[in-house]
Computed example of a mutant assay.
Amino acid sequence: MILYGTNPIAWANDDDQTIGAHIPTRQILHEAGRLIGFDGIENGHRWPQDPQALRQLLGEYGLRFISGWYSTALLTRTVEAEIDAVQPHLARLKANDCTVCITCECSNTVHGDPNVAVNDRPVLTPAGMTAFGAKIEAFAAYLATQGMRLAYHHHMGTVVESPQDIDALMAATGPHTHLLFDAGHCAFGGGDPQAVLRRHAGRVAHFHAKNIRRPVTDRVRTQRLSFLHGVLAGAFTVPGDPEGEIDFVPLLRILAEAGYDGWLVIEAEQDPRRHAPLTYQSMGLSALKAAARDAGLDRG
Rank of each mutant, 00 (worst) to 15 (best):
G190H: 09
L75P: 07
G189L: 00
T76F: 06
A95R: 01
F65M: 05
A235F: 07
F227P: 06
P163A: 14
C101D: 01
P114R: 10
G234Y: 11
Q17R: 14
H154T: 15
T237S: 08
G184T: 00
A73W: 15
P242H: 05
W69E: 07
A140Y: 01
E31K: 09
N119F: 07
D97N: 13
L75W: 00
R64V: 07
E82I: 00
A73H: 14
P193F: 01
V100Q: 02
M148K: 02
S67K: 02
T6L: 10
N211L: 10
V116Y: 03
M1H: 14
L124R: 01
G157P: 12
L63F: 02
I9R: 10
G112A: 11
G284M: 04
E269T: 11
W263I: 09
G33S: 04
G184H: 02
L124C: 03
V220E: 12
L57P: 04
A95F: 02
H185A: 02
E267G: 06
V231R: 12
W69V: 12
A256L: 08
A131I: 07
R299F: 12
I166P: 00
S282T: 15
E82V: 00
D298R: 04
H200C: 07
A140F: 00
E105V: 03
G244M: 07
K289H: 05
D261Y: 05
G59H: 03
D241G: 01
A117H: 04
Q194I: 12
R214V: 11
R77M: 02
G296S: 01
R149C: 13
L252S: 06
D247P: 03
R46I: 13
Y70S: 04
I28V: 15
H185F: 04
V86T: 05
G184S: 08
L63N: 03
